[in-house]
Design a protein around this nucleic acid. Structure first.
Lengths: 215, 215
DNA sequence: GTCTATATGGGGATAGAC
DNA sequence: GTCTATCCCCATATAGAC
């Protein structure tokens, strides 16, 4: 709230600023929650990853629950901004769909850990996502309406728009949730730019072909 | 090992047989591991679900680790039997692909909990799956070879066969991993037979169209 | 063969020291 | 403002009672 005039006289190698520590904690929390979910993650492990002792960590956070809420909120906010139909001024159905697939895939490839937190949360029942559903569902409804129009106009083949949206979700989210499997099958790191390019092109082709999209 | 002549004189309402207890334990373990993963699941919760006290449970199992290994092995064995190309004597590419999608999807819909254990395990790094990868990868290679032939013959459009297999995996596995999301979006239980029929038809159409499959 | 009482360690969180 | 010593609970697992 109040604008404390932080000195920020940070001699390198000296003690970390509070902000740096908090950033380390958030990063550590993302890794741990991503691997083990809320229940499975331990504040012990988060502290170690952040270079702190467990008891030190508990000075910087309110509690495990609110640390988790913060990280989850960060993800949901990023998603709700990114994954809207017609972002970046795309206009044709082909372009709107391609852009959507691209955005969703790039997020999965660039932020696999935080994406997996969502999956982990859903697997454990999703109770901590309840607050986010109304908004998420209304964003979905917007996409559904748009797709239904295209179906009615014969631009895409007759299909259930909700199932198409779920299909795209599944196809893209795979590359964060199943990164381990994907890298084993492909024998290559998912961080390789050429591979990312290939996956992107293939997913776009697959989706466009999958709904018989005419320009 | 030795064939103990079990009396099995089970008066209804009386004490459960050891086999019944073990079945309860396995079912409870599947539910718990499915929700919280290996680390997050507690023997306490498993015991409660199985109608036992924690200390009783530990009489019937060796330890948490081996209970988990048993359940995971059960899943991997079921999958390796089910998901082979050309099961049930299907012959045309169209039929082989459709049958594969159907088998994978039906398993996801019929056994969502145990399917989720795999996902949970991957999310936490997949170390407990190491023993299963060689066989799984060789089964995958079989499918890849088959698909590559079809590509070479112009039966399906030019695509990376491994990516197609991963796409099908993602599309079908979605219905166990994201069952909560799916039911919210669709406003309906995934156990509804009509909905299952619709999903199946749509997935098959989507995949066949997605690879431009000619008969 | 079955179950209980108990050991031992790690979990999250805090009161109080610096 | 920062960190440590410590609390209490729940985790897994087992020795020993029935």
């Amino acid at each position: 709230m109040s604008a404390t005039p932080t000195p920020a006289k940070q001699t390198r190698g000296s003690k970390q600023s509070r902000k740096e520590i908090m950033d380390n904690i958030r990063a550590a929390a993302i890794s741990e929650f991503s691997q083990h979910g809320f229940i499975g993650a331990s504040t012990q492990a988060i502290a170690e990853r952040a270079g702190l002792k467990k008891s030190q960590l508990h000075y910087y956070i309110e509690d495990k629950e609110s640390l988790y809420a913060e990280v989850l909120g960060q993800l949901m906010s990023a998603w709700s901004k990114l994954f809207v139909f017609g972002a970046e001024g795309s206009c044709t159905p082909r372009q709107i769909l391609s852009d959507y697939v691209r955005q969703k895939l790039e997020f999965a490839l660039d932020h696999p850990e935080i994406s997996r937190i969502f999956t982990n949360e859903l697997l454990s029942g999703g109770s901590r996502l309840e607050a986010f559903w109304p908004s998420a569902l209304s964003i979905t409804q917007g996409k559904v309406d748009r797709l239904q129009m295209w179906v009615d106009q014969g631009i895409v083949r007759p299909l259930n728009p909700r199932l198409l949206i779920m299909n795209i979700w599944a196809l893209t989210q795979y590359y964060s949730d199943y990164a381990v499997q994907a890298e084993l099958i492909l024998g290559k790191s998912l961080q390789s730019p050429e591979l990312q390019r290939e996956i992107l092109d293939e997913l776009v082709s697959f989706v466009l072909a999958g709904c018989n999209l005419k320009d």
